[in-house]
């Protein structure tokens, strides 16, 4: 079965994620598969994504923690290091992974990536170019995306995301 023999480390990490969530981040394992997490990250304040609610999915492969978690955005996002399928270009998810890192640190790094896009290591060449040549305009585009997404979430509340969102805005 999918959830038998779940390593102790994963159980510990999950408990802590649920009992002491990092600000602006929620992560909860799916019922059918304890290695598969529904993740929600709020757009950091003073970033172009402020006001946006971003849904992600995270999976701990069999080799975890010797291999990095797999993470991607399910919400469309305009960002130089995130491609159209939501795949994230972030060193700690690839060659800079270390078993000393955790789900929590990965999600905090992704949150930080929203505050500080890295146009020198782009997945999306067009957006990176846009960012480099006209940061103000790119920031505006990001803000617009976040705004539209926020509207959509308010209009179609689903699962725990709407709750989180409501708290964030009340």
């Amino acid at each position: 079965m999918a959830n038998s023999n779940l390593p102790r480390r994963i159980i510990k990490e999950t408990q802590r994620l649920l009992s002491e969530p990092a600000p602006g981040i929620s992560a909860s394992p799916s019922e059918e598969n304890m290695r598969y997490f529904n993740v929600m990250i709020l757009g950091p304040s003073q970033s172009p994504y402020e006001g946006g609610v971003f849904k992600l999915e995270l999976f701990l492969p069999e080799e975890y923690p010797m291999a990095a978690p797999k993470v991607r955005f399910l919400t469309k996002i305009y960002h130089p290091n995130i491609d159209k399928l939501g795949r994230i270009c972030l060193d700690i998810l690839k060659d800079k992974w270390s078993p000393a890192l955790q789900i929590r640190t990965v999600l905090l790094s992704i949150q930080a990536l929203l505050s500080a896009p890295n146009p020198d290591d782009p997945l999306s060449e067009n957006i990176a170019k846009h960012w480099k040549t006209n940061e103000a305009e790119a920031v505006e585009t990001g803000e617009l995306t976040a705004f539209l997404l926020a509207l959509r979430h308010k209009k179609f509340p689903s699962s725990h995301s709407s709750l989180l969102f409501a708290n964030f805005y009340s």
């Binding site: 079965m1 999918a2 038998s4 023999n5 799916s30 598969n33 290695r35 598969y36 999915e57 999976f59 492969p61 069999e62 080799e63 797999k70 991607r72 399928l85 795949r87």
Partner: peptide, 23 residues
């Protein structure tokens, strides 16, 4: 690791499985 197998007890969820196939 071969696509989709992931050992006996670990189930790769749909989306991550399709990302593997895509790559």
């Amino acid at each position: 690791m071969t696509i989709g197998s992931g050992g006996s007890s670990v189930v790769v969820p749909r989306n991550f499985r399709l990302l593997e196939e895509l790559e």
